[in-house]
């Protein structure tokens, strides 16, 4: 059986957006025993996988030619917003609202992997987008 075509990928945000480490926290970290340090490193850097997002237009928002895209779980939601704005070719003055679970707009620094795992439908995270604010 032929495998279905893979959705195209959302390009990665190359710039690191990690916050720097405070002196107070680094004092604690440098005094960690070796197993604690190794466990922390492993927990901080999970191997990113790719998940599927599906965009659905609401109201008068323009429809995408392709509505499903792959994205790395390590990315921030901001990258999704920027990507969608580019795909829709919206000018800087046009507002765009992205909703998850028909209810909330994630913060721009939320992790895509967390959102997908918490709110996916089947294996896709559905994102509704609108040119007007919705869902109170």
């Amino acid at each position: 059986m032929a495998t279905p075509p893979q959705p195209p990928a959302i390009p990665e945000d190359a710039e690191s957006t990690d916050l720097p480490i405070t002196l107070a926290a680094s004092v604690v970290l440098t005094s960690l025993p070796r197993d604690g340090r190794a466990a922390l490193d492993a927990a901080l850097h999970p191997q990113p996988t790719k998940v599927t997002l599906k965009f659905k237009a609401m109201g008068s928002a323009p429809v995408l030619n392709k509505d499903s895209y792959k994205i790395k779980t390590s990315q921030r939601f901001e990258n999704v917003v920027v990507f969608l704005r580019n795909q829709l070719d919206l000018g800087p003055d046009v507002s765009l609202y992205l909703y998850v679970n028909f209810s909330f707009m994630p913060a721009l620094d939320e992790n895509v992997g967390n959102l997908w795992a918490s709110f996916k439908t089947g294996e896709e995270l559905i994102i509704n987008y609108s040119l007007q604010s919705a869902f109170g």
Binding site: L19, P20, I21, S26, L40, A43, N114, A117, S118
Partner: peptide, 10 residues
Amino acid sequence: IPSTPRVVQL
């Protein structure tokens, strides 16, 4: 998760 924080929400 501390240092450069990583948020886990599953």
